[in-house]
Design a protein around this nucleic acid. Sequence first.
DNA 1: ACCTTAGCTGACCGATCGGTCAGTTCCTGC
DNA 2: GCAGGAACTGACCGATCGGTCAGCTAAGGT
Lengths: 182, 182
Amino acid sequence: MALQQFAAVGFAGTSLQQIAASAGYSKSSVLYHFASKDALLGEVLTPAIERLEDILGGFTSTSEDAASRRQFIEDFVDFLLQYRLEVHVLINQAQSLKGIAVIDRARALIVRLGDALCQEHATTIDRMRFGVALGGAAYSLVAGLTFFDEDITPTDDLRPALITLLSELLAPVAVRTTQPRK
Amino acid sequence: MALQQFAAVGFAGTSLQQIAASAGYSKSSVLYHFASKDALLGEVLTPAIERLEDILGGFTSTSEDAASRRQFIEDFVDFLLQYRLEVHVLINQAQSLKGIAVIDRARALIVRLGDALCQEHATTIDRMRFGVALGGAAYSLVAGLTFFDEDITPTDDLRPALITLLSELLAPVAVRTTQPRK
DNA sequence: ACCTTAGCTGACCGATCGGTCAGTTCCTGC
DNA sequence: GCAGGAACTGACCGATCGGTCAGCTAAGGT
């Protein structure tokens, strides 16, 4: 679909002609179903954003203990695996797509995610753990498309590896000790 | 310069008009100094690639012990900090820019880098450590541009944090123990 | 004084961009 | 059988894309 092109070539680098051709339709037909190119991007990305909002909501509403943190990481990894292309677009193109509604929504969500995982007293390295985990995961999940012809790594292999890695990276950060917040 | 636009908006999303305007010249003048848009990209990215080739060459030519690995990580972090925008472009846009000479050169270099750090017997999680470290570092170094108005994090703060993080991530991978492989 | 050359520019090119619109096809409910 | 609407399309629009070209200006060498 169009999503693959956005992730591979970038939103700006993908033309409506290419989207239409890869879908087997004409450009006019694409614009019949979607009001504009921006609207198409919105409809493509919205399911991923809503899923992430759900996960974050579930996490922030629970008490902070080891079990809920582990649950969050598992949910988050499954989210990454299911919406890997969407995540890649959001992470790597949010800067250039400022102003589009769905992108601004996603950016606010990512900021909230960072706040939930590391309080404002977090040190530079704590914040960077979050950034590296997020950007690194988003990158690795599509790196196969960049450096190999096929994305060969199967999901079954990736899931436990990602969970281990994100646990390592986020464990020291996510520790919300007795102090609840503020 | 043009590099900032490439990193921020993407190569495809940056027009020669914008590059020229931000440099205070006309589009014709830009094309007088650079044969084409692709050639401009090449000249912008080449210094970073050559520096990385130097670092990788120095690493592979030394014996594999803790000291040389630490030296490599320090060099690599300094490289990331110095060429953060270039790295971001290479990491996140290599896929869409296949065919441009400088990009293909960089892709081959990154593959070599991965091979040097984790042998072919490396497990999925080992390879992913490398990918997360690379993609994560590239992402965090420009995430400030995406989510905050200014890239406020000073380099002095970033360097030790990055070294610590990359050491953690790459330490288990880079262990070329006595056992050569398989 | 003259010529060369580097640096730079506006005008222009064909191609393609996102988007509009009138019209065609085809299916469905009556 | 037919009216109506949904799906779809080609032709077309102004704007902008990367790139070419002739020409302008200023500096330097002789």
